[in-house]
Nucleic acid binder design. Structure first.
Length: 334
DNA sequence: GTCCG
DNA sequence: CTGGATGCGCG
DNA sequence: CGGACCGCGCATCCAG
């Protein structure tokens, strides 16, 4: 099955295009990559059976991208991609994952300092060559160094099983605070994904200050990224980050929905909202300036004409179509 | 680059 | 010191 | 064919 290999190439093409500030193509390549990743069928098999036209029928894949898939299946290479790799001989596997370093800055680092991999990036940062560059600064340089450490240590994802006990403990502690009216753990934890990037707590409270103080002084906190009245962010000794956000009750449902994700699911929901002449954000569902839903997830889904979707299914893999037709599968509870 | 109207 | 532009990241 | 492509917040940097 070559779907994943091809998807990866498309992600990298998207990155190269972003480096050159090409408009909209990156989006197209990312979408194609995403579709390919989630595709049940093997593209090679599709091509064998249905030829070029078969490829073209895959959503997000048109004339040009279909040609590139064909080229890859025939020759094992994509010329367009090879040229970009030659132009920017950068180790994207290493560099793409560094937080705070995107395509634009990557391009500058490559052109001004010749940085092509993680080791060179680290050396340049330590030698303070990065801060003086246009668009960078002291702070950015420091952040890059910290991001490198983070990438080295953990690759940025954690197993649900490893962090769930810690999260539960924190959850219980926060819940017992008298200022906390309601608390939920959202994000990929709520969706029960096997790996978790970071942990997000949402809270309803009229008096956030003590909650924030408590949160940033929890045992196991090794770094406080930031602390305000509505949001605080920390790094735990196990290496993962936790955020907490305090919200008003009237938009709590919208925030639950938004922060639970997935990203793809949210985008799909927003599109549906647009089709209905509405606007969905983390603050609520709006008709013009009027908020027509926001306190609960259920009313948001309902106003969008669909059933409430269990978090585990929110991946934009068909659950939205099913919910619109009121044909969601029942999740087996075990 | 792809989709939609 | 401020406002605006940019890059990046979040779901 | 021409226009849209999710929408937002934050940190940072730079120009004034």
């Amino acid at each position: 099955m070559k779907n994943q290999e091809i998807a990866k190439i498309f992600y990298e093409i998207a990155y190269f295009l972003e480096m050159e500030d090409v408009k909209f193509k990156p989006y197209a390549y990312e979408k194609a990559a995403l579709t390919l990743e989630g595709l049940e069928r093997d593209v090679e098999e599709i091509y064998k059976k249905e030829g070029f036209e078969g490829l073209r029928k895959i959503p997000g894949i048109g004339e040009s991208i279909a040609k590139k898939i064909e080229e890859y299946l025939k020759t094992g290479k994509i010329q367009y991609y090879e040229e970009y790799k030659k132009k920017y001989p950068i180790n994207l596997d290493e560099l793409m994952g560094i937080e705070g370093l995107g395509p634009k800055r990557m391009k500058i680092l490559y052109e001004k300092l010749g940085i092509t991999n993680l080791k060179e990036l680290e050396e340049a940062a330590k030698a303070h060559k990065i801060a003086p560059l246009y668009g960078f600064g002291e702070k950015t340089e420091k952040n890059i160094l910290e991001a490198i450490e983070f990438a080295k240590r953990s690759k940025g994802r954690f197993l649900l099983g490893d962090i769930l006990p810690i999260v539960k403990e924190v959850y219980e502690k926060l819940k017992s605070l008298k200022e906390v009216e309601r608390i939920d753990a959202v994000g990929s934890i709520r969706r029960m994904k096997e790996t978790i990037g970071d942990v997000d707590f949402l809270v309803i409270s009229k008096n956030p200050k003590p909650i924030m103080d408590f949160f940033v002084s929890l045992p196991g906190v090794i770094k406080v990224w930031g602390k305000g009245n509505t949001k605080a962010s920390v790094r735990m000794k196990e290496g993962f980050d936790m955020d907490i956000r305090v919200l008003p009750r009237r938009s709590y449902g919208a925030a639950l929905q938004y922060f639970t994700g997935s990203k793809e699911h949210n985008i799909a929901l927003r599109k549906i909202a647009i089709q209905k002449g509405l606007k969905l954000s983390e603050y609520g569902l709006f008709k013009g300036a009027e908020m027509i839903a926001g306190e609960s997830e259920e009313e948001i889904y309902e106003k969008l004409g669909m059933d409430w979707i269990p978090p585990e299914l929110r991946e934009d893999r068909g659950e939205i179509e099913a919910a619109l037709k009121h044909k969601l599968p029942k999740i087996i509870d075990y």
